[in-house]
Design a protein around this nucleic acid. Sequence first.
RNA 1: GGGUGCGUAACUCAGUGGAUAGAGUAGCUGCCUUCUAAGCAGCGAGUCGUAGGUUCAAAUCCUACCGCACCCGCCA
Length: 583
Amino acid sequence: MILELLKNRVSQALVAAFGEELAGVDPLVVPASNPRFGDYQSNVALSLPKQLKQNPRAIAQQIADNIDITNICQTPEIAGPGFLNFTLLASYLATRLKDIQTDSRLGVEIAKNPQRTVIDFSSPNIAKEMHVGHLRSTIIGDSIARILEFRGHDVLRLNHVGDWGTQFGMLIAYLREAYPKALTTADALDLGDLVSLYKKAKVRFDEDEQFRENSRQEVVKLQAGAEDSRHAWQLLCNQSRREFQTIYDLLKIELKERGESFYNPLLTGVVEELSNQGLLAESEGAKCVFLEGFQNKKGEPLPLIVQKSDGGYNYATTDLAALNYRVQQDGAQRIIYVTDTGQANHFAGVFQVARRAGMVSERVEVVHVPFGLVLGPDGKKLKTRSGETVRLRDLLAEAVSRARKDLEVRLEKEGRQEEEEFIADVARVVGMGAVKYADLSQNRTSDYIFSYDKMLALQGNTAPYMLYAYVRVQGISRKGKIDFENLTEDEKINLAETEELVLGKHILQLSEVLAEVEQDLLPNRLCQYLFELSQKFNLFYDRCPILKATEPQRTSRLILADLTARTLKLGLSLLGMEVLERM
RNA sequence: GGGUGCGUAACUCAGUGGAUAGAGUAGCUGCCUUCUAAGCAGCGAGUCGUAGGUUCAAAUCCUACCGCACCCGCCA
């Protein structure tokens, strides 16, 4: 990583110029804020005047005098109040590009300390359909998992499905009175029916005291392991599971189901442990742990309820059990929860209690990765025209169908004839890519406005724009009958034109960006990088003829184009997106 | 009422201590006998919600206030 290299060199120069006491100082090297200032800058001289009793420009000068960057950068420039600017040499860039040409990882290092990482994402509820509310968790969680996996971490992707609790008592109780057959026969109902039944059951639950009592009895029976209840529950779960799987298949997302029910046998132990630790209190009949730093309306400490007054457990208990299991049994060193921001308080509470109870040591990082809502064009929570929650399969199907229409219009306009298979495949890749990219390219934490038109737009920061950049390179390969894999290794890269230089530099920054995303868990940084890469490539493509160039420039440019395409393909794959040869 | 997050160009958004705050869209203007113009270049557009504070340096950190969203003991 070039950034890492420069940091080391600046650190060494600091020691050489000012002595050992500067050894631990952060060299403050960052990519240049503006291309006019070169490629990287160190701001460290600005932070040292007090300590060194010298003015910042003089400090910068001494760093410059002592730094060893021959063959890497031009002589560093001191600018403004004391910025130290570095401009990479074209020859150095060419060497580095040559290095990654034969590297399938494109220069991205494996993490120095691979971590056992659990990512908890997607997590739909059994007996309900996946809807727009699951979109972001699923897409963001998958992307984070892919990035960490690529960096060499040992990732366990867990689908913490809602397959337990009150809702099942309710549902089974309702089915028992209304559709007893559904409890004994597989697939007697389809999931759509199940969802509407769920709603009816909910209405009954809210209205009818006797029904509420029946539901509670069903939960008790289920949790006690009664044969017919278990069987009914299994049928419901299997049916939902298959439905979920069709969506995961479409999105090409893999994850391991380990639902809430998995932790059921561990719940009493959690409460016992909290009691042993002296953390448990009783309030209004419920067992809870009072949180530090959280207060209710009256200024009293807020409780985290772990056992309800009726003796039942709730999601806090399950989450504590899961956390404990993930640390103890899964050996997790980093645990990532991808859920909406609305659950921030809940997780803060759970994490705090887990720490205080000693379930999670300081060595384990537990982090909530929150994301904002998906809004409609009106700026409110996305709904269908009739005001219903948008089903995920409808949303995805709509994206594909719109992508297909766009393509067909273009084929018509350009007088192209294509096979059905080609059309269907392009529509799928573009549609899925558009949905995923639109989501991932936003800063996770804020809400975003969902718009098919924007995400499928052919211009702008969209999936189609980037897919097109990739397609352009493949077009060159076809037209010139070039096999990129067989470009001779002894051909040189020569970054003569500005566009080549700019593109080459950007290609080499992938590993820096991924290292950042690995820390911040913000995939939009990777999106930004890939968008800029596409822009820089398009400019290069516009200004620098490739197939028509004379040697040795021709081969040099072919290598550059190939590296761009491979970087795009790799980067997009880390976002969970596919590429196309033609579109 | 308390908590959390957000408030940046007409619109959608980047930018979590560094130089003159960026991109895309929309609008206007150029560039296709040339590797897919699904592209490229140029132009206009901002009191970074408001007011203080910390710092050599603040959109970024702190405090207060205004506005919006979400959450707030037995749903997850």
